[in-house]
Write a protein that binds this DNA or RNA. Structure first.
Lengths: 87, 87
DNA sequence: CGATTTTGAATATTATATTATTCATTTTTA
DNA sequence: TAAAAATGAATAATATAATATTCAAAATCG
């Protein structure tokens, strides 16, 4: 028997990912926020695992080249799969 | 040269996916909303490509057994990869 | 076809995500 | 180690996501 990840866990994982990817590119919360037209507080809350909007999540995914991966995951379910995506 | 998907496109893809998966299980918007402790309006807006919250998205992903896939995508970036996930 | 169910849409209200500002603490770096 | 930069956290204000209600149109079904 295998239990999947919870919503809270997923938010914390997402939070950790943002922090890791941001530090990997040596950006401060302020710098990342500016590039995404968000406030530093929004980035800080996202990295703290707080709830957020799809716009905020997708801006981050797009910046770190993960938006296409998410879109692929979505497409796989609807039968769109155009497969040859590089991202 | 390859341009990735846009944020608006991703929201529309997500919207379409929710509608497809919901109909696949022969659920009305109302029934799905009740199972996720959301209002029908929230489901309707999500299926219309409107902005939403992570909680709403994750509830839907969890219901359709896609939350673990998203978590895996996230883990891959942070170096957590415990790989053997079934979902 | 007629009846029922489902869906889209509008309004108004509530809950909360986003923001600006400020300050204390921590981390970085010179 | 001292100075500077970055972060966490609190408050208050604004924007907007979520909700309840209602109604018309569309889809589904007997």
């Amino acid at each position: 028997m295998l239990i999947g990840v919870s919503i809270k866990e997923t938010k914390l994982k997402t939070a950790e990912m943002v922090k890791v990817l941001r530090k990997r590119e040596k950006l401060s919360q302020e710098q990342l926020a500016m590039r995404l037209n968000l406030s530093r507080i929004t980035i800080k809350n996202l990295e703290a695992g707080k709830n957020a909007t799809l716009d905020t999540l997708f801006k981050v995914l797009q910046y770190f080249d993960l938006l296409q991966s998410f879109a692929d995951l979505v497409d796989r379910e609807t039968g769109q799969q155009d497969y040859d995506s590089i991202y």
